[in-house]
Structures are given as C-alpha cells and as structure tokens.
C-alpha cells in the first residue's frame, strides 16, 4: 500500500505508465520487429507536442481560465515567415531563427496586451489574436510551399546516436523549463499566482510582469515548434498547427499538471506526448479505421483523467 501511495503521489507517473503500456502493446503485435523505428518515430513526433506543451503548461499554471489558444496560428505564422525569409538558403538559417523568436515575442506581447488592456478572459483574447495571426499567415503564405534550407531539412529529420535531433532539442528546452519552474524565483512566482492571484499580489509578487513573461514564453515556444515542424515536414502548410491546439492542452493535463493552476510538472509532458503518439500508432498497427481510432483516443483520454482525476481540484 505504501508503495502504491508513493507512486500515486507523483502526478506524472500515470502518463509514463500509460505510454509504456501502449508501447508494449504495440511491439507485442509487431513481434518486436520495428521496435527501434517505433520508438524513434514516437520521440520525433512527441518532440513537437512537448515543445508547445511546455509553453502551454506555463500558461495553464497561471490559474483558472489561463490558456493560450493562439498556439496553432503562431506555429503556422512562424513556420511560413521563416521559410519564406530563408528561401532555401543555408546562410539564412540564423536570421530565420531570429525572425521566429521575434514573431513569438510579438504575438505574446499582443496577447497579454489584450488580456490586460481589455480585461477579457485569456481564452477569448488569445482566440481573437489567433484569428489575426492566422490571417497574417494566410497573407504571407499565398499557397506557396517553400522548401526549408537543406541543412535544416536534414538536421530535423536525422538522428544523433539513435535519438532524433528534434527530441534532443525538446530535451534541452525541457531541462531549461524544469530549471525555470523548480529552481528560480520566477517558477515560484507563477505557481503562487496560479494558487491565488490576490495572495500573490499581497505578497508583493510582480503579478503583471510574471504573467506577461509567461505569455511571451509560450508564444516563443509555439513559434519555435512551428519553425522546426515546417522544416521537418518539408514546408509550411496553413493547417500545420491545427492539431496542436487540443494536443497542447491534452498533454499538459494528462501529464498531471493541475488544470486549476498552481501546480505543474515537466516530466509528465514527456509521458503524455509519447502516449498521445503511441496510442494512435498502436491503433494503426491493429489496423483500425480512422473512426474507431478517434473514439479510442477519446475514451483513453477520459479514462486517464478519471484515474488520475482524484488529485485535481476541478474548477474547470
């Protein structure tokens, strides 16, 4: 019993257990033939969800109602503009990266400006913003599909020591995020704000500054993910971010971060992102159609949240 207690107390353990079970269930069917391929694919695709998920986690930690719906459109805009600027030229990789970060900062600033100036709920503010950003992406894209520079295309699809490069980047970002959350005053501040904004204010925490930085951080991570995803998939598409809207929220919550805010954890994002990819590939391996696959995914998400749900103080 004590063992079970200790395990259950770590909120991220559930997503890891779930991911491992699904991984195991898949390789049993394939007879272990494609174990390495499956693991590498899982790490690659999970990497993108991890990067956007971490940004979303910081925002959700800020408390009830805080969620960034502009993630998908920011990804699309960053991917489109960066590829257009780089124009298949290896020498332009760094400027492209710079523009990506600038776009993230810009969207983040505008998001928080709307939240603060108009006092509208973050969901609606980031939603309105996402419409504008999406339009900007459509306007710059014009249906053209520009290839990424060769170096980037190779880099994002290659492995280092058997580990996909994008997963390495995700790992670096995760370590930084973990450090920010657990070892800096900023991390304590966002948890404090998430637990009680009035209390945080009275304790003298710069609430506005902290929230502002968090929204900017989330948007920058989203645009970075867009940059990498566009290079990985050989060009930016207008709908490339759309699946990451629900995905970014799902991995945060499945990973054991409290939806009501004030409590977050980085390892859970990894478990949940791997799990989300592995579920789809497991159901694919079993040869199930798209409809059944979607239904199973939904039921699995609901079962996981019900299993881990006792812990969550559910405001939303």
């Amino acid at each position: 019993m004590r063992m079970l207690d200790r395990v259950a107390r770590k909120p991220w353990i559930w997503s890891w257990v779930a991911a491992f079970v699904v991984w195991f269930a898949t390789i049993i069917v394939t007879g272990g033939a494609s174990t390495l391929d499956l693991s590498q694919a899982a790490l690659t695709f999970a990497a993108f969800s991890i990067i956007v998920g971490i940004g979303q986690m910081f925002v959700i930690t800020l408390g009830p109602g805080n969620v960034d719906l502009s993630v998908p459109s920011t990804m699309t805009l960053a991917g489109t503009v960066a590829l257009k600027l780089m124009d298949v030229d290896n020498a332009m990789i760094l400027p492209g990266l710079g523009v990506t970060v600038l776009i993230g900062i810009g969207v983040g600033i505008l998001n928080y400006a709307l939240i603060k100036a108009l006092r509208i709920p973050p969901i609606i503010a980031t939603l309105s913003m996402s419409f504008i950003v999406q339009s900007a992406a459509i306007w710059t894209n014009r249906g053209l599909r520009i290839k990424p520079p060769n170096f980037l295309a190779d880099f994002t699809t290659a492995n280092t020591l058997g580990i996909p490069n994008v997963a390495v980047i995700a790992l670096v970002i995760s370590v930084i995020a973990w450090f920010l959350l657990e070892r800096t005053i900023y991390g304590r501040w966002i948890s404090a704000i998430g637990q009680s904004m009035p209390a945080a204010k009275m304790a003298g925490i710069p609430v506005d500054g902290t929230r502002f930085v968090t929204y900017v951080f989330c948007a920058v991570l989203a645009s970075l993910a867009g940059y990498l995803l566009a290079c990985f998939s050989g060009g930016a598409a207008l709908n490339m971010g759309s699946e990451y809207l629900l995905m970014s929220i799902a991995v945060v919550v499945l990973g054991g971060t409290a939806v009501a805010g004030g409590d977050s954890n980085v390892p859970g994002i990894w478990g949940a992102s791997l799990f989300m990819f592995l579920v789809v590939s497991m159901l694919n391996t079993y040869g199930l159609g798209a409809g059944i696959r979607l239904i199973m995914t939904g039921l699995i998400i609901i079962s996981v949240i019900m299993l881990a749900g006792g812990r969550l103080p559910g405001v939303r």
């Binding site: 919550v253 499945l254 939806v259 939904g298 039921l299 998400i301 609901i302 405001v315």
Partner: peptide
C-alpha cells in the same frame, strides 16, 4: 469525480 470539464469534453 470533480473532473475538469475542459479535459472531459476534449476527450469527448
């Protein structure tokens, strides 16, 4: 179960 409606409806 005091679940977050956002996640349950996301699954649904």
């Amino acid at each position: 179960r005091d679940l977050p409606s956002i996640v349950v409806s996301l699954g649904m």
